[in-house]
Amino acid sequence: MSVQITVNINGEDVTREEEPRKLLVHFIRETPGLTGTHWGCDTSNCGACVVLMDGKPVKSCTVLAAMAQGHQIRTVESLERDGRLDPVQQGFHELHALQCGFCTPGMMMTARALLDANPDPSEAEIRTAISGGICRCTGYKNIVAAIRWAAEHPATVEQEA
């Protein structure tokens, strides 16, 4: 029943014996240290599970791990690099764009992909881009503002000591 599945997550190949039915979100979350990708529904409506697949946001609850073999997966854990926060992370902190934090990884990965494709998005473009995600806490106002902040501060931010 099990097959060997190799998925490249955040630049590293992760190989495990899994059933073909293993969902990508579970494959990621069962990799030590990578529980930042969440799930909130079963029907690809909530966006808590969004990761980047070859640079594009996808809902990892509706992708089989086996289907991700040979593709590059990026999760929230990859945003911070060498101790530098991604501007999206920084913006979410600066503008109080998260409360319970559960939708945050999916929102941030969606935002990262948006800014990669469109470095200067309008409010309407931001709202459309994140419309595949549900946030129960923020009413989206500060998320939209945080993504604009990130657009206006594109360089990775130097962290204070």
């Binding site: 969440h38 999760t75 979410f92 934090g101 559960f102 945050t104 941030m108």
Partner: peptide
């Protein structure tokens, strides 16, 4: 609390 959440290091 943001420090852990923006890094995907919450503990749900």
């Amino acid at each position: 609390e943001d420090a852990r959440f923006i890094r995907g290091k919450g503990n749900y």
